[in-house]
Design a protein around this nucleic acid. Structure first.
Lengths: 235, 235
DNA sequence: GGGGAAGTTTGTGCTAGAACAACCTATTCG
DNA sequence: CGAATAGGTTGTTCTAGCACAAACTTCCCC
């Protein structure tokens, strides 16, 4: 097997501060793997035997309730770590990860986590920062669900996706992975019908431009207004 | 000033595995402080200059939206660490902490965090486990807000409080700190009116027994049924 | 190229729960 | 002690958004 190119990961935050030899070691311990669209990378409740780095593609992190409802916790884009349950003293994955499109990942056995943290300077700090950011995100999500209207929540979700993972076209910012009304509803705690109505309305107002599994934000500013809009603002 | 007794913290998870000398060192570096009911221990957005250990009392962790709504993120009971933003690479507190009743806390300057993690074996593991638990809690909260009815959410919130922080009386499990309808609504993303109606209904069914700033769960099992109840179960 | 399947739109109820208002009761403190 | 205040209850109204149904569109693949 060919060995992996060092440039693959040298620019990614947790590894950025490392020496070339360290990166070499880390890559030599990694296993690369491809997942095709729709495949599960790991499943909720499964023992967390590996942690992953997404090199290419998009991944959805999903939780399912006892009654079968799904909630999309977050989206992972290339360059992000995932399945780092071990970092926070968990022995099982807290959610499932599913490849949205074709993905390329590297993974390591969880047993190496401790080594990475101890041996590679900056790795711990950077990954704990990631953990911190995810906590913040989760807390913001709670705040939104508890206090905002559906319209604002959907606006914010799209805004975040446009910023996090879109390509710029002549129409606007196109979210660069397939995204259905159903998916959006699972991110925002609403129904696919309501999302469809919102998108239709926004389309008429020229804020978005959407199609089958596709959303293009044409007017970021208008969407921002919707997202920030205080529900009481017109009183 | 009298030095603090080692038994104060020797049984608390992050310190449990430590030697007496280490505990001595840690205590000598700690500052004890009392807060009276209603006082803020730290505020959201403030630079995270200290981390705290709650020795006695109850603390509410609160986030506030731009539009002024409050959400109660969690309750801290004695023996828990709080303000550990530094653990996760944050420089400001992500939420405010308010003393519910009279509290006794120890605190250390954030600069010592790194020392604690490096020097005291088991401290890092235990605190990261705590962080992990809080992430799980947050994610569960999201799942609940996104998929469950208000009644279930309130039932679960009370159940959790009863388990986490109650004293057993002859009437049942009494939540051992003052808790208003408003507080409950801020934990569950609803209104104080709806909570009041639910509690009234439950009182009639003999599930709870509540009064001003007071809730006693008399029938845990019935409350559990309400909490687990699938909204579709009767179809 | 035609028949699914998957995704989307839109119409029509309908209801959980928010909003507001009014009143009541316990506590606190000058 | 008595007024002020904080907390609680309950009635009424109203609407955001869910539920369900039905038809339409796009894509895929045999």
């Amino acid at each position: 097997m060919r060995s992996l190119d060092e440039n693959l990961i040298s620019h990614i935050p947790p590894f950025r501060k490392l020496e070339r030899v360290d990166i070499r070691e880390i890559l030599d311990a990694a296993t690369p793997k491809r997942f095709s669209a729709g495949q599960a990378i790991f499943e909720e409740h499964e023992p967390a035997e590996r942690f992953f780095l997404l090199l290419d593609g998009h991944v959805r992190v999903i939780r399912t309730t006892a009654s079968g409802d799904q909630v999309i916790a977050r989206h992972i884009v290339s360059g992000e770590l995932m399945g780092i349950a071990s970092a926070i003293g968990r022995t099982t994955y807290p959610a499932s990860a599913v490849a949205i499109d074709d993905c390329l990942v590297l993974f390591w056995p969880t047993s190496l986590w401790k080594t990475f943290v101890e041996k590679y300077d900056g790795f711990a700090t950077e990954t704990y920062k990631t953990v911190g950011e995810r906590i913040s995100e989760a807390n913001n999500h709670i705040l939104e669900l508890a206090t905002q209207q559906v319209e604002q929540r959907v606006a914010r979700a799209l805004l975040r996706l446009a910023i996090q993972s879109s390509r710029i076209t002549d129409e606007g910012m196109e979210i660069d992975f397939p995204l259905t009304r159903q998916n959006i509803s699972e991110m925002t705690g609403t129904t696919l019908y309501t999302v469809s109505r919102l998108l239709s309305a926004w389309e008429k107002q020229g804020i978005v431009n959407s199609g089958r599994k596709k959303v293009i934000v044409t007017e970021m500013n208008k969407l921002k207004t919707l997202a920030d809009l205080d529900p009481m603002a017109d009183s």
